[in-house]
Nucleic acid binder design. Sequence first.
DNA 1: GTGTCAATTGGGAACGTTCCCACCGGGGGT
DNA 2: ACCCCCGGTGGGAACGTTCCCAATTGACAC
Lengths: 340, 340
Amino acid sequence: MRQRSNQPRRATIFDVAAEANVSRGTVSRFLNGEPYVSDSAREAIEKAIAKVGYVRNMAARNLASQRTRSVGLIVHEPHSVFLDDPNIGAILLGTNERLSEEDYQLVCLIIGSDRDSARVADFLRGGFVDGVIIVSAREYDPIALAISEIGLPAVFVGHPTTPYDIPFVGIDNRTAARDITHRLIDTGRQRIGMIAAALDRDSGTERLAGFQDALGAGFDPALVVDYPLYSHSTGVDGMRALLEREPLIDGVFAASDAIAAGAMEVLRESGRRVPVDVGIVGFDDSEWALRCQPLLSTVQQPADLLGREAASVVLDLVAGRPPANTGTLLPTEIAWRGSA
Amino acid sequence: MRQRSNQPRRATIFDVAAEANVSRGTVSRFLNGEPYVSDSAREAIEKAIAKVGYVRNMAARNLASQRTRSVGLIVHEPHSVFLDDPNIGAILLGTNERLSEEDYQLVCLIIGSDRDSARVADFLRGGFVDGVIIVSAREYDPIALAISEIGLPAVFVGHPTTPYDIPFVGIDNRTAARDITHRLIDTGRQRIGMIAAALDRDSGTERLAGFQDALGAGFDPALVVDYPLYSHSTGVDGMRALLEREPLIDGVFAASDAIAAGAMEVLRESGRRVPVDVGIVGFDDSEWALRCQPLLSTVQQPADLLGREAASVVLDLVAGRPPANTGTLLPTEIAWRGSA
DNA sequence: GTGTCAATTGGGAACGTTCCCACCGGGGGT
DNA sequence: ACCCCCGGTGGGAACGTTCCCAATTGACAC
């Protein structure tokens, strides 16, 4: 068992050193891109590596260097949200891509229950990752607390309102919300409402604030309803409530695409046409936006970039470099489609 | 750098051994659940571990034992599909859960381009994982070929038609198709058709076979149309074709939810009501099923279980145990909703 | 009493790196 | 001529496990 049965032994750094006629110290320096390797040595080593088919042994490297070269992606959401939210997948993809560029590995840590929460905290305390990226932390999230207690390099995707001393990468929800709301104003809508959600998170409050910014003096609190979740049913309920309060409503900013989709169904049921009678815009540019009739105008989150950027920051932190920014807001685009 | 600045040194197996007054060999045996540890030793070690706060060093373990305790999840799909397909996320979750029960780690390997393909193959050849789970392999997938060449323990989720000597975990498409078709029969439909798709894959042919099973002698080949893709447009085209052939059609089995959704649009356009005039059922229980009016009755794939089961099989393989089954078909459920 | 075997235990020897210190040779300043 | 420094090199000593063999004990059969 010590040796994979019939397979030939894997080449080690010793084999490379022997083949290249240098010491393993030099090979190690070469592999790690350190200085003090002569051109001749470099060349010989490159050849030797190709010849013996050498690949690094991660375990040995991790053991000797006392780090794991992996970072955890913590998603603290019920499994259902993990599956639905298109942004999470894209963030994962972006993070994975950036990390693998630096030979780092992504470890998925999905917290679906409180039991998971404790397990993950233990895992982190065990030093199994060099750093973590926290997606969608709640306020006073026990995991976030544990992390800052352990002193593990970390970065948030999004921007929790509670003041952890942890850098974050997010989007400018407020500006984006303001800009897309302007679309409704510019197309001459007179009574513009909003279906807000998740006001316990920064994303929720910021989107509402941006809406208010756009409307300025014309802002009417009576035309805002809010619900806890960014869900389809929020859109259904919210639109019904809004129609009841103001049957003449002709513009709606939905805090997410799922909400917008729900709202559009209610509008259709009530005999209103989109965008002729009512203009509607969303937020996220998720699948929902493309399943609407007409297609939904919405804010595109650069979710993969969020992932990449977060990975970069955590890599800086792990390497002991101060990160370029302790808080980054990425710009958003707006996808103009048929709904407004 | 050798030692994390101010942090106290992490406890090792030596500390535990000293504290418990046994040798590190005994501690190691205890940790790995091996026999030949006396009750008294066991007890002392448990106390010692708690006292010194010991957690295993993975890197050292991996190095000494010559395995990585991680398995790769290979998803060979463009990034967009990775994000859309709800099954993939659920499979990931299920796999992750099962692996972490055994202290194994999931490494996501997402192949979105041919460039990735080569990178991943190198990665696998480098021995960075002990085994792999392959989701949605294509026929003659270069990665699958590389894997069977390397001799890496592997398992498919799904059941590619090409004959790799690799076990698989899938669902019983045929039985599920038969069962859901029965719904149409049981509700008194007289002229039941099917919009089949992807007859070049096992899932496509099996679903068709199940449909035929259910209808028995009543099966009429004229009421089956087939197309290459499980897509929405297949549903639109298929339904039109079917209506042309048999205007009195009153039951439709669509080979996927997307197809069903397309078909329902055509039915509505043609003035037929669902489920009053025509009953329709789908397959997958994807988002499409919930976007229909009325909601679609459909076959639920137990995607998380597929992931769990695949993980179990690969764990068996890695441990050198012959897997319980070389091909497993998991049972499906049917979600009864409004469409039939 | 002696031999045998099973249940335990101890500890040497890897595993394949990185880290670090000692060393070498030559060019430039004194 | 001397010393020093600097690019470059070699190799000993970890890193924290697992693996395996040898040693010890006690029970039990002969």
